[in-house]
Computed example of a mutant assay.
Amino acid sequence: MSVMVAVPDSAEGALALTSAIAEARLLGTDVLAVNLGLRPISPEHLMSGETRITILERTHHESHAEVVLHALAEHPETERLVIGVKRRSKVGKALIGSVSQTLLLEADVPILAVKLPH
Score class of each variant (00 low, 15 high):
Val82Glu: 08
Leu36Glu: 06
Glu50Tyr: 11
Glu79Lys: 14
Pro76Ala: 02
Leu72Pro: 02
Leu105His: 10
Ala24Leu: 14
Glu79Pro: 07
Glu50Pro: 06
Glu12Phe: 01
Ala6Phe: 05
Glu77Leu: 06
Gly49His: 13
Gly28Trp: 10
Leu27Gly: 08
Leu46Tyr: 13
His70Val: 03
Ser63Val: 00
Gly49Phe: 13
His60Gly: 07
Gly49Arg: 11
Leu69His: 12
Thr29Trp: 09
Ala73Ile: 07
Arg39Pro: 02
Leu81Cys: 10
Pro40Trp: 12
Met1Asn: 04
Gly92Met: 08
Ser2Asn: 15
Arg39Gly: 02
Ala11Phe: 14
His60Met: 11
Gly92Ser: 14
Ser42Gln: 14
Val99Glu: 02
Lys93Ser: 11
Leu104Thr: 08
Met47Pro: 00
Ile83Asn: 01
Val5Phe: 07
Glu57Ser: 15
His118Glu: 10
Arg25Cys: 06
Thr18Cys: 11
Gly13Asn: 04
Ser48Leu: 09
Ile41Lys: 05
Glu66Arg: 03
Thr51Gln: 00
Arg25Trp: 09
His45Thr: 07
His70Phe: 07
Asp9Gly: 11
Leu105Thr: 07
Ser89Thr: 14
Leu15Pro: 02
Met47Ala: 15
Ala24Phe: 13
Leu38Gly: 10
Ala113His: 08
Ser98His: 01
Leu32Phe: 04
Ala107Met: 07
Leu46Glu: 14
Glu66Asn: 00
Gly92Cys: 08
Pro43Asp: 12
Thr78Tyr: 00
Pro76Asn: 00
Arg80Ser: 01
Ala6Ser: 03
Ile55His: 08
Val31Ser: 09
Leu104Ile: 13
Ala11His: 14
Gly49Cys: 09
Glu50Phe: 11
Asn35Glu: 02
Val5Asp: 02
Val114Lys: 07
Leu26Asn: 09
Lys115Gln: 10
